[in-house]
Design a protein around this nucleic acid. Structure first.
Length: 925
RNA sequence: GCGGAUGUGGUGAAAUUGGUAGACACGCCAGACUUAGGAUCUGGUGCCGAGAGGUAUGCGGGUUCGAGUCCCUCCAUCCGCACCA
């Protein structure tokens, strides 16, 4: 008798559906556990084998926790706004909502075949109006809040406005980039346009001018990703930097809390470190340098090294710095302008990455050193970024390598302020040493000098201590169609919020999904009547970025149907935050940081009772594709096999991996694949086959290396695929996809089913008591699997199960008392097979998932003796079984008495014998 | 460039706290069975060597009785870098 794996997939999936087996509700008397996957973007290519990796792991863990008695919330949904659907819409005119729905349907079908235990009644889609209604609502909360720096939390704008009208901004503790002071009288005398302009500097969601990558030809803003060396990927048009009025979120107000909060999270050190670096806290000072010949014009710079103040030999402004136009002298005007123009064609990343190519121009202007009053030339160069610090630096070539290279390149002076340090070859960046050539800092240790310099700068009123963050406020508007519309309209140019009862503002229909001729976002194509609600002079034409919906989706799963609130208080109080979150580490600094930010904000506003969204995080590694290649002789339609290509000049071309088996190309299928290959000829290996080359790279449609799970599930069943993906290796490691090993896992499942057959091959098990050995195998297995799952070692569990089945097979174990608990151990990995065999044991249908995880008995595992490895000077020579109860001196005596020991000692007397109980004996001679 | 990670047989990997390197699989080799199959079972398989033995966890060094594991230098590969998701 054999199990039909395809049939049991269907049987049990239908059973779970009909019995609503995966639906969960709050149960006050049961501990909760929330297992979440990063929800996917439903792409047109469908689910590839990389997607389910994390989903399988989370499903196994969710099932494990259920067996352990937890009430497990395990939902799934779709991050369904995004560029690919929009691009497709631009090409075809098809509304992105339609393609998105089709893709979701396909995803769902593919997911369902893998037997996941998702509670689909809780599904969310970020692109559905019922969902984005609340994304819009949360945006309004950000707009109507400011960050109170004395209570260190977000507070309602009304409080701030009330303070302004009674005291002005004197004594207001708010996180803001507004620098001037105003009185209550002034505030009250301003009209609403003037007042709003000020309030924008306090709101947590606000409008401001931001730099963007602008492609004039496409009339659109591009991501760095969409640009290669200054040209758009689409169409190769020039791209330039341009300022644009955009919505942003004041995430910088949360920088310190986002940093501090990391300490208590059960995330990998790697990802915490990435977030720390992204936030990039650095302490230093802002210093003002007066510009020569310009009254009241002082250049503000930020430095982390005020101790090197006397090593400054030039200043560098970012090419976008607002001062440039004012200070540049007549004779340098043209040069600076040209430079700015050339820089505007480079993206920020190009500027940072290209350090070998040093560029910059002199402005003709000088600043005066605040202490020694020397003149210092002002340059502009693209290695200084306008987005960090003040967009200007004091250059200290002796202490900073970029400054050093710049000075060498343009032959600028270098002053060494480090005593006894050689800077002939390179700058000295360490913070250890003694300062010299530096007036009042002479003789001080660097760390003391930093403190003392800050003090002097503040005393002289030339600046102040300052904590700077690399983190920038998050730009929140996109000039795209397929995203959440803002709940915003404009009146007299003032942005205003649409009332809650008019939400959601639904995406209006447009005649095309492209920007307008004048470069306005696609929504500007809409007519007034295209909007479900229209107000004021016009609506907001931007849409929200991809990360808006994904910053809070984990909350909506708790209460997906709620019409009155984004999540009910009782629901969020029960389920709380996510206990285990699994997803790719490409989200390390984007999604994960934004979700933390929103969570902290919603906590501040009293909507949710916790301030971190994800307690435990696991980043699954990427599954890489194994691409296959053919080699075409240049200028011909002839393809040379791998081992013969060295004799020809060839081009390497990707070939669809589905045409290749074991690196051998199916020639007929290849000819049918693409019309241009129909007449292809081949130069084959000596054995008459065509051998393809291969490379491991990211799975992608364009590389023809995408592997979908569908065919494998079709062939082997869902359980085999689930186990195989886990068996590939540690979850967190990236690995190439290769199906060669899948037969091993499939064989294991078949071997497992054979334990349930009697000698005649019928489904029949023994009720009698198992032997001691059988019990030992079971309990050893229980313990190992529990240990492994508790440390998320999903791959070793598969091996453990294999070992158990191999051993039970050797023991000819057909005993129900062993097999029943074994099924429970198997069920998180192979739920269909486990339920089927459970039924074969004559137990109630569907009962395996409802069982309790078996408890191992230590007494079953006690060993009387241990096979000690005996090593000599660290090299293992032989093993010896020794009673574990023997005291150390008797063990050593026993060992020394062995003939084998004396042989290896070669007559020498041991200097030392290391005895580690239950581990090893090492004889040092 | 900056930040993060990973390097162990022909392949995926295991070794949880420094204690027998290569578990468990794939592949390969040999064999059994058989109305021949992508089935099942048995044995072997890091490398060199007939063997004793030697050697081996990216390279080089260090700490230790003992290092895949800890420390330092270097090399290679992968991921992220703010409008891809």
């Amino acid at each position: 008798m054999e199990i039909d794996f395809q049939a049991i997939d269907k049987k049990w999936q239908l059973y779970w559906l009909e019995h609503h087996s995966n639906k969960v509700v709050e149960e006050a008397n049961k501990p909760k556990y929330y297992v979440l996957d990063m929800f996917p973007y439903p792409s047109g290519a469908g689910l590839h084998v990389g997607h389910p990796l994390g989903y399988i792991a989370s499903d196994i863990y969710a099932r494990y926790k259920r067996l352990k008695g937890f009430n497990v919330l395990h939902p799934m949904g779709y991050d369904s706004f995004g560029l690919p659907a929009e691009q497709y819409a631009i090409q075809t005119g098809q509304h992105p909502a339609i393609t998105t729905e089709q893709n979701i349907a396909r995803y769902r079908q593919q997911l369902d075949r893998l037997g996941f235990s998702y509670d689909w009644t809780r599904q969310v889609k970020t692109s559905s109006p019922e969902y984005y209604r609340w994304t819009q609502w949360i945006f309004k909360q950000f707009f109507n809040a400011y960050y109170n720096t004395s209570s260190d939390k977000a507070c309602p704008m009304e409080e701030l406005i009330a303070a302004f009208s009674t005291n002005g901004n004197q004594g207001v503790n708010a996180f803001s980039d507004y620098e001037k002071m105003f009185t209550a009288e002034e505030w009250n005398s301003w009209n609403d346009v003037e007042q709003e302009a000020v309030l924008q500097s306090y709101r947590l969601a606000f409008l401001s001018e931001t730099w963007v990558n602008w492609c004039p030809k496409l009339g659109t803003v591009l991501a760095n990703d969409e640009i290669i060396s200054g040209l758009s990927v689409r169409g190769s048009h020039p791209v330039e930097q341009k300022k644009m009025m955009q919505w942003s979120m004041r995430i910088k107000a949360y920088a310190d809390r986002l940093l501090a909060g990391l300490d208590d999270l059960d995330w990998s050190d790697a990802i915490k470190e990435q977030q720390r670096n992204w936030i990039g806290k650095s302490e230093g000072a802002n210093v003002f340098f007066d510009v020569e010949g310009h009254n009241n014009l002082a250049l503000e710079i930020f430095t982390t090294r005020p101790d090197t103040l006397f090593g400054v030999t030039f200043m560098v402004l970012a090419p976008e710095h607002p001062f440039l136009e004012q200070i540049v002298t007549e004779e340098h005007k043209e040069e600076v302008k040209n430079y700015q123009l050339s820089v505007s064609k480079r993206t920020e990343r190009d500027r940072q990455a290209d350090v070998h190519h040093i560029s910059g121009v002199f402005t003709g202007a000088f600043v005066i050193h605040p202490f020694n009053k020397t003149s210092i030339p002002i340059w502009t160069a693209d290695y200084v970024l306008s987005t960090y610090g003040t967009g200007a630096v004091m250059s200290v070539p002796c202490g900073d390598q970029r400054d050093y290279s710049f000075a060498k390149h343009f032959n600028l002076p270098i002053i060494n302020v480090f005593k006894g340090i050689d800077i002939e070859e390179e700058a000295y960046g360490e913070k250890v040493g003694i300062i010299e050539n530096s007036s009042f800092l002479d003789g001080l240790e660097i760390k003391e000098a930093i403190t003392f310099a800050c003090q002097k700068i503040e005393e002289a009123n030339r600046g102040n201590r300052k904590v700077n963050f690399r983190l920038r406020d998050a730009v929140f508007s996109r000039q795209r169609y397929w995203g959440e519309p803002f709940p915003v309209y404009y009146e007299k140019g003032i942005p205003k919020m649409i009332a809650d009862e008019n939400l959601p503002i639904e995406l209006p229909n447009v005649d095309a999904y492209l920007p307008t001729a004048s470069g306005e976002p696609p929504l500007a194509r809409s007519r007034k009547e295209d909007w479900n609600h229209f107000q004021g002079d016009r609506m907001e034409y931007n849409t929200m970025p991809g990360w808006a919906g994904s910053s809070w989706y984990f909350l909506r799963y708790l209460d997906p149907e709620n019409k009155d609130s984004f999540v009910g208080k009782d629901k969020v109080a029960y389920w709380k935050n996510v206990d285990l979150y699994i997803g790719g580490n490409e989200h390390a600094t984007g999604h994960l940081l934004y979700a933390r930010f929103w969570t902290k904000f919603l906590y501040d506003m009293g909507f949710i009772p916790f301030n971190e969204p994800f307690k435990k995080l696991i980043n699954q590694g990427m599954i890489l594709g194994r691409s296959s290649f053919v080699y075409r002789i240049k200028g011909e339609n002839t393809f040379v096999s791998l081992n013969k290509k060295k004799d020809y000049s060839t081009d390497q071309l990707h070939v669809d991996v589905n045409l290749v088996d074991n690196d051998k190309l199916n020639l007929q299928e290849f000819k049918n694949w693409l019309p241009e290959y129909a007449d292809a000829t081949f130069i084959l290996e000596d054995d008459g086959t065509y051998c393809c080359g291969f490379e491991v790279e990211k799975m992608s449609k364009s590389k023809f290396n995408v592997q979908t799970p569908d065919a494998l599930v079709e062939k082997f069943g869902a359980d085999t695929l689930r186990m195989y993906e886990m068996f590939l290796g540690p979850l967190e490691q990236s690995k190439p996809w290769d199906t060669k090993g899948i037969t091993g896992v499939h064989g294991f499942l078949k071997k497992t089913t054979r334990l349930f057959l009697d000698t005649t091959g019928s489904w029949n098990t023994l009720a009698e008591d198992p032997t001691k050995e059988m019990w030992k195998v079971l309990h050893k297995t229980i313990r190992k699997i529990q240990d492994d799952l508790d440390r998320y070692s999903f791959n070793t569990v598969v091996s453990t199960l294999m070992i158990a089945v191999n051993e039970l097979t050797d023991l000819k174990c057909n005993h129900k008392q062993i097999l029943q608990p074994l099924l429970v151990l198997l069920s998180p990995y192979a739920p269909h097979t486990a339920e089927e065999l459970w039924e074969k044991l004559g137990l109630p249908s569907g009962g395996c998932a409802l069982a309790s995880f078996p408890v191992y008995d230590e007494a079953m595992l006690v060993e009387a003796s241990y096979e000690y490895p005996i090593s000599f000077n660290g090299k293992m020579r032989f093993t010896q079984s020794i009673d574990l109860h023997l005291p150390e001196n008797e063990v050593i005596e026993l060992i020394m008495g062995l003939e084998n020991t004396q042989k290896h000692l070669e007559g020498k007397t041991p200097k030392k014998v290391i005895f580690v109980k239950g581990k090893i004996i090492n004889i040092v001679s």
